[in-house]
């Protein structure tokens, strides 16, 4: 795909810990197109956060060992020296995090922390120019009385306000890619909707490509264009969002969709996927989902299914790999 802004090829992340090797992410392949909103869904521990942090190389290594390629244009981000990587972070690729309450440094004012990004990436800006850019961005994310906010410290602001500030901060240098790791999980439902609207709007206005990580399928349905479902460190299914909700192919995806409240007729109990996510220290052989899957057969236990599919809808499952060919 030639309009891809980011291409993840065979990403593997292994953590070398005192308990042994942990395969946090296995053979992830993903593509993000210009202006696209990509959703990464999965349970806790499915490797979605690790994948997203790998893109801007936020994982401490050691213990993390990253292999594969992450192409940003024709630059392999994984091959860059650490100092070079700093030039991309916060500049071309930005990230916002799950916990707005603790994502800002408690000891510095909003102006200081936001201005820092510009001082770093756009050398030569004067104090007044920096302040103007920061104020402008605060207005764009609908922060009331931005002049007052400049002088405030994080503890003086609400969670929703802090997340807006994080978003404003991440967009200061008009990055091509914004990675949002569960940006609304820690917020009230009403605030959640507003933050998602904001992210949506900014994506449309600036043409920023978005990677949205969440465990909330409701959020995915509202926000993104394309979804990748992760399970135990691997992508099990990826498809355009409507396609995925209409016709999920992987039993895990189907299980997830059935466990959304409201997905069943009234009075019927919600479906639950039996069992738990396998430990990353002891991955089962074959398909990682086989011991929770109602359709598992011998082959699932023995061999890991490859990713197959067409028209943008791909799945890693022996039940589908056969019929649809490659």
């Amino acid at each position: 795909m030639k309009d891809a802004v980011l291409k993840i090829e065979n990403l593997n992340v292994i953590f070398h810990t005192k308990y042994g090797r942990a395969n946090a992410v296995t053979d992830v392949n993903l593509e993000l197109r210009r202006g696209e909103k990509l959703g990464l869904v999965g349970e806790s521990g499915s490797g979605k956060s690790v994948t997203s942090k790998s893109i801007i190389r936020l994982l401490p290594s050691p213990p993390a060992e990253l292999t594969g390629h992450i192409w940003y244009g024709d630059v392999d981000l994984l091959a860059l020296p650490a100092r070079e990587m700093e030039r991309y972070r916060g500049n071309r690729i930005s990230m916002i995090f799950q916990e707005p309450m603790v994502s800002l440094n408690p000891l510095y004012t909003v102006e200081n922390q936001m201005g820092e990004v510009l001082r770093r990436h756009e050398k030569g800006l004067g104090r007044a120019q920096i302040r103007e850019r920061v104020l402008d961005m605060l207005r764009r994310v609908d922060i009331p009385s931005p002049e007052t906010r400049l002088r405030q410290y994080p503890f003086e602001l609400s969670g929703g306000m802090r997340q807006r500030i994080m978003i404003a901060m991440s967009l200061l240098c008009s990055p091509e890619i914004l990675i949002a790791d569960e940006p609304t999980t820690a917020l009230d439902v009403t605030i959640q909707a507003k933050i998602l609207d904001l992210i949506h709007k900014l994506n449309t206005d600036y043409g920023t490509s978005l990677i949205l990580i969440t465990h909330d399928l409701g959020v995915i349905a509202q926000t993104v264009d394309y979804v990748a479902v992760m399970y135990a460190g691997s992508i099990v299914e990826k498809a355009p969002v409507k396609e995925l909700f209409r016709a999920p192919l992987h039993p895990y995806t189907a299980g997830l969709l059935q466990s959304i409240p409201g997905s069943r007729p009234d009075g019927e109990e919600l479906a639950v996927i039996p069992g738990t996510v396998p430990s990353i220290y002891r991955m089962p052989g074959g398909c990682a989902f086989h011991n929770r899957c109602g359709f598992a057969c011998e082959r699932c236990r023995a061999q890991k299914p490859p990713m197959t599919g067409q028209n943008g809808h791909y799945v890693a499952c022996w039940r589908h790999g056969q019929e649809e060919g490659r």
Partner: peptide, 29 residues
């Protein structure tokens, strides 16, 4: 290990600034 250190890194700040400005002052207090 705090999230604001991840934030500081995600902004592209150099490791020196992350350690001295963002971490040391907090550790010192």
């Amino acid at each position: 290990g705090k999230e604001y250190i991840d934030t500081a890194r995600s902004k592209g700040l150099s490791e020196r600034v992350v350690v001295w400005k963002h971490a040391f002052k907090n550790a010192l207090s």
